[in-house]
Every structure is written in C-alpha cells, then in structure tokens.
C-alpha cells in the first residue's frame, strides 16, 4: 500500500499572532513552526500501517525551503520519503491542484490530509484533492482500518459517529481521535539520524490557478474588562446574565 500524507507547516499553538506589511502578512518573527496537529494524527496512523502492514509512507508539502525542517521531522517520526513542491501557495485551491498533479503520477492508495489547518482553517485541501482525483473522501475521520482494497472509516458528525465502508483509493481528512494522543511519536535520536539519510525531493510547481487572495488581516477587537461577581451573590450573576448579557 502506498500512502501519502499532506503536511501543512503551521505556527505552534502557543504562538502570538501578529501581522506585518500593513497587516497584509503574518509576522513569522520569533514563531516556531510545527506539523499541523491534524496532519500529525494522520501521519501517526500512516506510520502504524507502515509498521504493521508494510505500507510505504510519503510526506509532501507545498511550500518554500523554510518548510523543510517540518518535513525532516516527519521523516524522523517514520515517513519513508518526502517531497516539497517549491511554491509559496496563495490559497487552498492552488495547493489542491499542485498536490493532485503529483498524485496523478504516483497512484497512492490512501491520501491523508488534516481536516483543516490551524493557520488558514480552510478545510478545503483534502476535499478538493479528492474531487480532482475522483477518489472517495471521508473527512473528520476518527477511525480507519484497511482490509485488502476496502477501507472502513469512522467520521465524526454533529452529535454522533458515522461508519463508512468504501473502496480505495481514498482521501481522508484526519483529526483528533484517529489515533490516541499517547500514540503520537516523538522522534528519538535514531529516527532523527535516519531522517538525514532519507530522500527529500524538491519538485517544481505545475501551472495552477488561484481563486482567492487575502487583502488584509486583523486581530479581534480588544475586549472590555471582566465583571467579577462574588461567589455568594449568585442571584446577581443570574440577573446579569438575564438582563445585561441577555443570554439566559
């Protein structure tokens, strides 16, 4: 089985978000970048298939050279090889086109992406990629087993869980629950050393379209001060919620 994991290189969850260039660009200054958490759940599941069922795991990112440490980390976690499509993408539409051009050459059985990235939060790329490829698609994926050419997947829906059976090839949008938190792999020294020997190939971008641009960023308006209510004044609290905030 050939598995591709699409990796988005995103600011660490503790990052303070600031903008530069007249609020037109994200300020990368002092920001640590990580593997998008949803992608990490997916990568962990892929490495499980590699260890248990001899799958080959490839990771790919569409991004500039500054994304390479993130790809190396994926290799240290256990991926067999990495690709970087050399383009600083403008939108998810473009990312999906770049990825699909690569996938058409490689014929992966399973393509794993994150349900959404924690920076752009587009929730676009995996679905668009599946549509370009004509593959089955399951997002919000919280369980995945493969038997021969059949996938059994679980999807979280609003207020429940769906169980799905479909044929490979398949694209999934991974999220928390696909693997347990404790199964996430922290690279060890051996993994890090091995990662240096593994192949990381830079591919030129293909022609692609964009469908959206970002004209500016802004931060949420500063909030008013908190109103503290004494713990023996619960009646007053209820009154505030009812009459002032009008939420109960």
């Amino acid at each position: 089985m050939k598995i591709l994991v699409c990796i988005s290189h995103v600011p660490d969850t503790t990052s303070k978000i600031n903008f530069v260039d007249d609020d037109r660009a994200f300020d990368k200054n002092g920001v640590q970048f990580i593997i998008n958490p949803n992608d990490e759940f997916g990568l962990t599941r892929a490495v499980w298939f590699q260890q248990k069922e001899q799958a080959e795991v490839t990771v790919i990112t569409v991004g500039e050279a500054s994304c390479e440490p993130t790809l190396r980390k994926c290799l240290a976690i256990g991926a067999n090889r990495a690709f970087r499509i050399n383009l600083n993408p403008t939108d998810g539409f473009q990312v999906a086109q770049q990825l699909s051009a690569h996938c058409k050459e490689e014929n992966y059985d399973l393509i794993i992406a994150g349900r959404e990235s924690i920076d752009y939060n587009g929730a676009m790329v995996p679905g668009m990629l599946s549509a370009h490829m004509g593959y089955n698609f399951v997002t919000n994926c919280i369980g995945l087993e493969i038997e021969g050419s059949t996938a059994k997947a679980k999807r979280e829906i609003d207020g429940g869980i769906e169980s799905i059976s479909c044929e490979l090839p398949l694209v999934i949008g991974a999220q928390k629950g696909l693997v347990e938190e404790k199964d996430l792999i922290i690279p060890n020294m051996r993994g890090i050393m091995q990662a240096r020997q593994k192949s990381l190939t830079v591919l030129p971008p293909v022609d692609s379209q964009i469908k959206s641009t970002i004209s500016k960023f802004e931060k949420p308006a500063p909030r008013g001060a908190v109103k503290m209510v004494d713990s023996d004044q619960i009646d007053q609290l209820i009154d505030l919620l009812h009459n002032e905030a009008k939420v109960i």
Partner: peptide, 12 residues
C-alpha cells in the same frame, strides 16, 4: 483564521 485568533479579508 488562526483558529479564531485573527480574521482575514478574503477576495474571491
């Protein structure tokens, strides 16, 4: 965007 830490204006 940035999981509710910010907003962006998107031109389509």
């Amino acid at each position: 965007c940035f999981t509710n830490k910010a907003f962006n204006t998107c031109v389509l």
